[in-house]
Amino acid sequence: MLDIFQYSFMVRAFIAGSMIGVIAPLIGTFLVAKRYSLMADSLAHVSLAGVALGLLLGIYPVYTAIAVSIFTSIVIEQLRTKYKVSGEIALAMFLSGGLAIAIVLIGLGKGFSVDLFSYLFGSITTVQTIDLWIIGTLGLIILSVVWLFYKELLYLSFDEEAAQVSGIPTKTLNLVLMILTALTVSLAMRVVGTLLIGALMVIPVVTAMQFRQSFKKTILTAILLSLFSVITGLFASYYFNLAAGGIIVVIALGLFGGSTLFAKKMIK
């Protein structure tokens, strides 16, 4: 057996990383298809405010991050549908707004800046057993919701108006997708950190799209690419002493670069 697996913290890292590696590109595919990829980044910044709030109140930060980002995703959807605030504007407001609140909260509780740092850039090697339970449970919920509403979510992403005409409750479904995004972002925080979550949700999807396959196969390819990035990234971080979150995203980017060359060859 590889010595890397003798450490229980590395085993937990692999378990958590693999679960996030599946969920992030799964939700990411729908976001990219809807041209909503920035949503992940905005909610990530908002979830950082949730982390700060949790640290300040002495509540486990993942819980407050989940609560705050879900709450915000609902507010953004309301702004979009009721007050016709455009998606981009809402996102810009919340991306910086979330960070602003986080900074204020950090200022209030001077002592926890080190903890917060680990949520900013991820610290997969400090993943606790409780994190595995949270990620596992909520991850399973995310997977089942997507499985149950797959064709509706695909329709929503492809053509919202036609979906509406065919009787799909598009407003509710949009909200569901936003809540799933909020959950994914909060869960992925421990693995790659709030600043890099967007990358893990988007880059493997864009890479998979290079292969010009069906929607289903694109999702599966994106998941494989992201799992590969997470697992090789964890090995690299252990053996070469690199920051896990960073190297995972760098590998994902490398795969994207490679795929552009490969895709060109395939078309020729």
Binding site: A208, M209, S214, F215
Partner: peptide, 8 residues
């Protein structure tokens, strides 16, 4: 760039 087949 939407990845979707005719059948889908």
């Amino acid at each position: 760039r939407f990845p979707i087949t005719v059948e889908e």
